[in-house]
Write a protein that binds this DNA or RNA. Structure first.
Lengths: 124, 124
DNA sequence: CGGCATCCACATGGATACTG
DNA sequence: CAGTATCCATGTGGATGCCG
């Protein structure tokens, strides 16, 4: 994994191409959906802000994940030249279009995993 | 990963629980979304049928993935006692509820990855 | 602040061969 | 048909420490 977006696009030209597999290849990595979710909800953010939002992730892993997301054109990184300089991560237009996927994941998790603690749900 | 559904539910009782992270933990594995997709589209299937549907997966990995999906209560496995016996994989009710997630992934892939080959799309 | 360097552990995937 | 048994490669994550 961590293929470049180009190699994925080449693959997409092939015969047995599947949109589900392709999308999974891009976002099926432990922290990717949460990172996108936080950027959707709270807008552009700096590294440390993002690290605080994404509970449990380490600097190294967040850094790796962001690099992967950039290579896949889902996240943009821009350097704000102030003193001291800041870095800002945001979703690309393609990344922002992942919203339906992320929201569906959010809904499913709420309905199917939080249920055991709730009294009003029939599930579990 | 490959935690049992029980340990995930325990985790869901915690403070910093996040539905997106939780859902990601369950289905973010290379072949999981495709497997669910095929079971949604074509209904219950035997092992070999499924292997044919999921292009590129090996027996071992499909077997591992199905075992993981069963442990998470997303897929059911039933043995049909005929001669010769058959095995049938199907989605549990929870698994079936993943449909919005999978469809969203399918849509995104179609709109954002197939685009380079299409002339009528503005993207890329 | 926004990382990178290092090292390590382990989960996961892939290839091949074999079985009841 | 429906897998299991090996073995191996690598992706990915996690911990710690350091840097400009």
């Amino acid at each position: 994994m961590s293929e470049s977006i180009e190699s994925i696009q080449v693959w997409c030209a092939g015969e047995d191409w599947c949109p589900v597999t392709s999308t999974a290849t891009l976002i099926c990595r432990k922290w990717h959906p949460v990172i996108v979710h936080r950027l959707l909800n709270a807008g552009p953010m700096g590294f440390t802000e993002l690290k605080d939002e994404v509970d449990g992730v380490s600097s190294k892993v967040l850094s790796d994940s962001l690099e992967d997301l950039q290579s896949k054109n889902l996240v943009d990184r821009s350097i704000i030249s102030e003193k001291p300089f800041r870095v800002e991560y945001s979703l690309t237009s393609q990344g922002a279009e992942l919203e339906p996927v992320i929201r569906a994941m959010e809904d499913w998790g709420q309905n199917n995993l939080r249920a055991p603690a709730d009294a009003n749900s029939g599930r579990f």
